[in-house]
Amino acid sequence: MQSKILIVLTNTTRYGTTTDPTGLWLGEATEFAQLMQQAGYDIDYVSPKGGFVPLDPRSMKYTDAEIMAFYETPVFQQHALTGSLAPEQVDPTDYAAIYYAGGHGVMWDFPDNQPLQAIAAAIYANHGYVTSVCHGIAGLLNIKDADGHYLIANRRITGFTKAEELLAGKKSVVPFFNQAAAEAHGAHFQQRRAYREYAVQDGQLITGQNPFSAKAVANLLLQNLQA
């Protein structure tokens, strides 16, 4: 059994053509990674371009001692934030699962990245899990299976909602809404109350609604990997 998990992070530094900074939502990476590591899984980090991964400055307001401790580790600093792998450096057969972390930046560089889509499709075809949290669902939207069908078609999934975008004050700047984009590709989008922990599994797909759902995604994944 593969003992590694691949976490996907954004390289996007700003909201589209604005000067408003964005990037990775820190806790969505650290909370998931910490639970996986505690369970004995090794973690690799990849981004669309490789290398530097910016942090969404707003995410630093929602940290705790656990998130900060993981953030400050040399391994996370070096392998996630400054030296993430490029897709061409990744062998999909090494991984039991792929996890797309969020932050608004992913809405610009996840959906159309074909190398990342190929990695996820290969992990899925090898009976691995394709997972995401919050805006990370953007990485799942355009993945297709071996038959050319959207991976999310006829599947129950969740992600950051339109109501949550409104509450975040970003409704007018995002390039699309997750629910509309997912449903356009045949998904059955699920949601619960804004900013409450919620994760859903449908087969090999496990998705979380918002930043407070990273641990729920990790725990669902671990239940399956350890079964």
Rank of each mutant, 00 (worst) to 15 (best):
M36A: 15
M36K: 11
M36G: 13
Q37D: 13
Q37S: 15
Q37E: 15
Q38Y: 00
Q38S: 13
A39C: 08
A39Q: 09
Y41L: 13
Y41N: 12
Y41S: 13
D42N: 13
D42L: 12
I43S: 13
D44Q: 11
D44M: 08
V46N: 01
S47D: 01
S47V: 05
P48G: 01
P48Y: 00
K49W: 02
G50C: 04
G50F: 02
G51H: 02
G51Y: 01
F52S: 10
F52I: 09
F52N: 09
F52G: 03
F52Q: 12
V53N: 06
V53H: 05
V53T: 11
V53Y: 01
L55Y: 03
L55Q: 06
L55S: 07
D56R: 02
D56V: 07
P57T: 09
P57V: 10
R58L: 14
S59C: 08
S59A: 11
M60C: 12
K61E: 15
Y62V: 14
Y62N: 14
T63R: 07
D64A: 11
D64S: 10
D64I: 07
D64R: 07
A65R: 01
A65C: 06
E66I: 12
I67F: 06
I67C: 10
A69Q: 11
A69M: 00
F70M: 15
Y71L: 07
Y71Q: 11
Y71N: 14
E72M: 11
E72V: 03
T73Y: 03
P74L: 05
P74I: 05
P74F: 04
V75I: 14
V75H: 12
V75Q: 15
V75L: 14
F76P: 05
Q77S: 08
Q78D: 09
H79E: 11
H79M: 08
A80I: 06
A80T: 07
A80Q: 07
L81P: 03
T82D: 02
T82M: 07
T82H: 06
G83Y: 01
S84I: 04
L85G: 06
A86F: 05
A86D: 03
A86V: 04
P87N: 06
P87W: 02
P87T: 03
V90P: 05
V90D: 01
D91N: 15
P92I: 04
T93H: 12
T93V: 10
T93G: 06
D94G: 05
D94Q: 13
Y95L: 07
Y95G: 10
A96I: 04
A96M: 07
A97Y: 03
I98G: 13
I98N: 09
I98R: 03
Y100C: 12
Y100P: 05
A101N: 06
A101Q: 01
A101P: 00
G102P: 00
H104L: 14
H104T: 12
H104R: 07
H104W: 07
V106Q: 02
W108E: 11
D109F: 05
D109L: 04
F110K: 11
F110D: 09
P111H: 06
D112Y: 11
D112K: 13
D112T: 14
N113Y: 00
N113V: 04
Q114R: 11
Q114P: 03
P115I: 00
P115Q: 08
L116S: 07
